[in-house]
């Protein structure tokens, strides 16, 4: 835990953030453009799905992010509740809208991919359904966080909810898979991971890295902003007390 506590100090965190932020931002832009270039120019069209397969390079990374950010929130919530780590609350709070954004993207691009492939904007496919439920979990988390006059209480309540939700994610995933095999969907396109061709795997992985870096950049800026807000609140209180 000592590594954590070293960065628990907000000033040290700010210093570190300010030095690494330009580098990560540069890396994000670079990987994003490299990924886009490969997605459009070096990767082939799929022999079954044609050019529509290019939607995969934003859809799949967005879906990865949906789960990754939720896990990060749950991890930050554990740190916030058990070790009362001062930055963990801020990290969870700053992550939620980003995760919700990516989850929305996974759903919307899924619909845009589903229309030409399945002939419908939405099918109750196991993966789509689980992501939809994950989106609801995000909405609940954000709503609970902002439902209290006292921000501290909102953060605490949202942390408990995030942990409960995280325990539930595998249960929900399992039950939805089960439900889906029982009700035999008409035609489900399978995108099995390892069998994918390297010429498609590379752009996918690079886009995945780019999305993760983007998350990191926005997260760091948001935490920085939250820290300044905390300072502002302290100043305002001092001003009120003086007068």
């Amino acid at each position: 835990m000592s590594v954590f506590h070293r960065f628990a100090n907000p000033n040290r965190f700010l210093k570190l953030t300010n030095t690494v932020l330009p580098w990560i931002s540069g890396l994000t832009v670079f990987s994003l453009f490299a990924g886009l270039y490969m997605a459009f120019f070096t990767s082939p069209a799929d022999y079954q799905q044609g050019e529509s397969v290019r939607i995969m390079y934003v859809h799949v990374p967005a879906a990865w992010m949906a789960m990754f950010v939720y896990s990060s929130i749950a991890f930050a919530s554990v740190c916030a509740l058990i070790w009362r780590h001062p930055l963990a609350d801020l990290a969870a709070k700053a992550s939620a809208p980003i995760g919700a954004g990516f989850t929305f993207l996974a759903l919307a691009t899924g619909a845009l991919w589903g229309k030409p492939m399945w002939g419908a904007w939405w099918v109750w496919d196991a993966r789509l359904t689980s992501v939809l439920i994950l989106f609801f979990l995000y909405l609940g988390h954000m709503a609970l966080m902002n439902a209290f006059e006292d921000q501290e209480r909102g953060n605490r309540a949202a942390a408990v909810l995030a942990i409960v939700g995280f325990i539930n994610v595998p249960i929900i995933k399992f039950s939805v898979d089960w439900w889906n095999t029982l009700h035999q969907p008409a035609s489900v396109m399978r995108m099995d991971g390892p069998s994918i061709d390297p010429s498609m795997l590379w752009p996918l992985l690079i886009m995945g890295v780019a999305f993760k870096l983007f998350y990191l950049v926005v997260l760091l800026i948001r935490i920085k902003s939250e820290l300044i807000e905390a300072k502002l609140r302290k100043y305002r209180r001092a001003l009120v007390d003086n007068t």
Binding site: S52, I55, L112, W113
Partner: peptide
């Protein structure tokens, strides 16, 4: 390949 109406909105969104 006639999928432009689905591919471009995905990226724009």
């Amino acid at each position: 390949g006639s999928y432009g109406a689905y591919v471009w909105p995905s990226y724009l969104l």
